[in-house]
């Protein structure tokens, strides 16, 4: 079992002929993801690593029946590409692209909600259900099939934590990168609900960071969960009002502080790791392994 994507995923890559698109298509194929077609306007008829390229999403879907898409489209064109994917009926749209204008992101999410599509990102490393499919850019070697569901806002920090979970021999059911931007498709709660329902998932790891109120909102749902939750929050030392890379990683007007997040999570019964490398230990302890 896994959430959102599994071995049935038939994946399109939008922007497949670009540097990033081509490189990560190779990586996804190596991982075993069924990348059935690519889309690059004006490049229809070409091939990338043996994957056929089409000019439009509809043309690719008509020929291959895809149900998911990964976008490596430059930020100014990401909105158009995401609308194209959603309009063609794709169920899961992963927007890897960074620096998507936030007004475009709001429009994408409104359209996705109308059509019932799941958007991951923008500014995400993607999603991986180990042993089944990887949609996005994380390194293949960090994953192992297992029992832990991981949901994170940031990329490399979750690689570090996912890797430690693999080294503990616990492995993951699905690892979801929600994306570092302020407006993204999934909330922690959307993902936690799915992990709570997923039979294979025995414990959940939440990797958050300062800024916004997503972790505090997640805590409300964690109260109702039967599975153990371990959390790590980055940004304890960040001074207020400084933007630390992600649009999300900023404390403004006293909201979204480290302390408020940790208090909310602990009050909800989650175990909060002080250091990133302690997460895997806490998960092992929670599972009694």
């Amino acid at each position: 079992m896994a959430i959102i994507v599994d071995e049935k995923a038939k994946v399109l890559v939008q922007g497949i002929t670009g540097n990033q698109g081509s490189f990560h298509t190779r990586q996804m194929l190596d991982y075993g993801t069924r990348v059935v077609a690519g889309v690059s306007p004006g490049k229809g008829g070409e091939q990338v690593h043996g994957v056929p390229v089409y000019d439009t999403v509809q043309a690719a879907v008509d020929s291959h029946g895809a149900n998911a898409s990964v976008l490596f489209v430059p930020a100014p064109f990401a909105k158009d590409a995401a609308f194209e994917a959603i309009d063609a009926g794709l169920e899961t749209v992963v927007i890897v692209t960074e620096h998507v204008p936030v007004h475009d992101a709001m429009a994408i999410m409104a359209f996705a909600a109308e059509r019932g599509a799941t958007v991951i990102g923008p500014n995400t490393y993607g999603i991986c259900s180990p042993g089944k499919a990887k949609l996005g850019i994380p390194p293949n070697v960090i994953f192992q099939p297992g029992v832990v569901g991981v949901v994170a806002r940031s990329g490399t920090l979750s690689y570090e934590i996912v890797n430690a979970i693999s080294e503990k021999g616990l492995g993951q059911t699905t690892v979801v990168g929600m994306g570092g931007d302020r407006v993204v498709g999934l909330t922690f709660i959307d993902v936690l609900k799915r992990f709570e329902r997923d039979e294979a998932t025995q414990a959940v790891v939440l990797v958050g960071e300062i800024g916004g109120t997503a972790e505090e909102e997640a805590a409300e749902f964690i109260k109702t969960m039967t599975k153990p939750v371990v959390a790590y929050i980055a940004g304890r030392s960040a001074p207020p009002g400084k933007r630390m890379g992600h649009a999300g990683a900023i404390i403004e007007r006293g909201r979204g502080t480290f302390d408020s997040k940790v208090q909310a999570l602990e009050a909800a019964g989650a175990r909060v790791a002080e250091m990133p490398w302690q997460v895997a230990d806490l998960v092992a302890a929670a599972l009694g392994t």
Partner: peptide
Amino acid sequence: GAGITMATLDV
């Protein structure tokens, strides 16, 4: 990465 950079400062 922003997350790991923040975590580095924290540590």
